[in-house]
Design a protein around this nucleic acid. Structure first.
Lengths: 117, 117
DNA sequence: GTGTTAGTTAGGCAAATGCCTAACCAACAG
DNA sequence: CTGTTGGTTAGGCATTTGCCTAACTAACAC
């Protein structure tokens, strides 16, 4: 049963770290080179790079090296996939609640028994 | 700079594991007792419980114990928070692209210089 | 009472994570 | 060519994670 969208857990795992969350937050405002991303992080460059690598593996970020500068950008596809998955679960749950409400209205004048699921 | 919504990284971290993703997927279809959640997982009960505890700490799941049965439910608040955060970054990025497009149209008949950010 | 079922606590262990420093390579600056 | 800057590779290390088994508690069944 541990199977939903393949790789989706990678996306969430990549976002599951304050440093990486901050990097994505920064990149949403526009592309940036590695060193600019690393600057506000209290952390060595190699460590920052590791975080960026994880974001890339998850498909959240892409990067291209021009001279000796590697410029990173957000990749919307993975973001949207994650957003959609959550939204689908949410709607599933809300729909369930709605149907429950309808059912309760159906037996309105009848019993007064608490029913769930 | 590692500061966005407090606890948001906890939410993503909790979702960043196939087992826990599966549990949330299951719970979106309706509440369930611990042992029913654990059944499809190839894993001991204590291990499954640990995952549930993590989901609860992240605010993704709530649970109430009635007799000796603990019933778990999804908590939409944390889910929505995560969904909203992603959506905001996405819109931020898309807005940026749109403004870039407008700018490029502005200088339409003029230069042909690649501008970014 | 005894036994069974649902969950919990305690303790241990291998692997993964997140950080570091040191050394290295490649581009640009002088 | 020499020095500096941006990035990368290598290796090490403490902590956290994810799993386990064994032992325990609490409710319900007989």
């Amino acid at each position: 049963m541990p199977n939903q969208q393949p790789g989706l857990d990678l996306v969430f795992r990549a976002l599951g770290d304050p440093t990486r969350l901050a990097i994505v937050g920064r990149l949403a405002r526009g592309p940036a080179p590695v060193s600019e991303l690393a600057a506000p992080l209290r952390m060595s460059l190699p460590s920052a790079m590791q975080h960026i690598a994880i974001l890339e593996q998850a498909g959240l970020v892409t990067s291209r090296k021009v001279g000796r500068v590697r410029t990173c950008s957000i990749d919307l596809a993975a973001m949207s996939e994650a957003e959609r998955w959550i939204g689908e679960r949410r709607r599933e749950w809300e729909g369930r609640l709605d149907r429950l409400g309808e059912y309760l209205k159906t037996i309105d004048g009848g019993e007064r028994d608490g029913a769930d699921d």
